[in-house]
């Protein structure tokens, strides 16, 4: 009985990621970031132009999220229902961890700027740490192993790229590209499993 209740709670928490759309849209955003880093590396344009490109990537990421939610309303909610997850900041422990991590990161960046330490070569590993933190948090909240794996992958790849001699921009581009590919793979696998599950459920209800 207790296990059944726990399983029901777990399924409800994981439902936000059950249709694979979050990973697929995350993959597109990571791909856009990879393109941005490549463009910045290849073209020698002014800083203002790069700020504009980065802003358009940011706006595109927002648009992709909106598009994902729009598609989800039509494809997922009508088939398997709607669940509104609890927000991350509603859990005080998680909020403390998030705030602590942000303070540490900003503090580290400020320290390096004040001390004049060159950190751009460490951009891939810093990006890897941030991504690892975000994915681990998602993995902890949902108990989905694929996010923990993704977090470890980003951390290891970020560390490797920082020492690979590729440089900050190429390194960040490779990290973003690799993350987007893994997200696409997870998204497609999850999507296929979700569609199959719907088909099976529909067939079972037809037989009743």
């Amino acid at each position: 009985m207790e296990n059944n209740l726990k399983a029901s709670q777990q399924r409800a928490i994981q439902y936000w990621f059950a249709d694979g759309l979050v990973e697929l849209s995350g993959g597109v955003i990571a791909l856009l970031l990879a393109i941005y880093f490549c463009v910045q590396q290849i073209l020698q344009a002014s800083k203002g132009a790069f700020a504009l490109i980065f802003l358009s990537v940011f706006v595109a990421a927002f648009g992709i999220r909106k598009l994902m939610l729009w598609y989800r309303e039509r494809s997922t909610y009508g088939r398997t229902g709607f669940v509104e997850p609890k927000k991350g900041w509603e859990d005080r422990r998680l909020l403390a961890v998030e705030v602590g991590f942000t303070i540490l990161l900003v503090g580290f960046m400020l320290y390096t700027i004040v001390r004049g330490i060159q950190t751009v070569v460490w951009m891939p590993v810093i990006a890897g740490v941030v991504l690892a933190f975000l994915f681990s948090l998602a993995g902890y909240r949902t108990k989905l192993v694929r996010f923990v794996f993704l977090g470890a992958f980003c951390l290891l790849l970020g560390g490797f790229l920082a020492f690979s001699g590729l440089g900050d921009l190429w390194g960040s581009a490779v990290l973003s590209l690799a993350t987007s590919l893994v997200l696409f793979a997870f998204g497609f696998i999850t999507r296929i499993a979700y569609v199959r599950q719907i088909k099976v459920t529909a067939e079972q209800s037809d037989e009743r």
Binding site: Q9, T80, G81, E84
Partner: peptide, 25 residues
């Protein structure tokens, strides 16, 4: 009652859930 305890378990884990989701669960 088993069904009602499942409904409450689901609702305790999320902010809200709709009728269809609860029916499937």
């Amino acid at each position: 009652e088993p069904s009602r305890s499942v409904i409450l378990a689901v609702l305790s884990a999320v902010k809200s859930a709709d009728f269809l989701y609860l029916q499937r669960e």
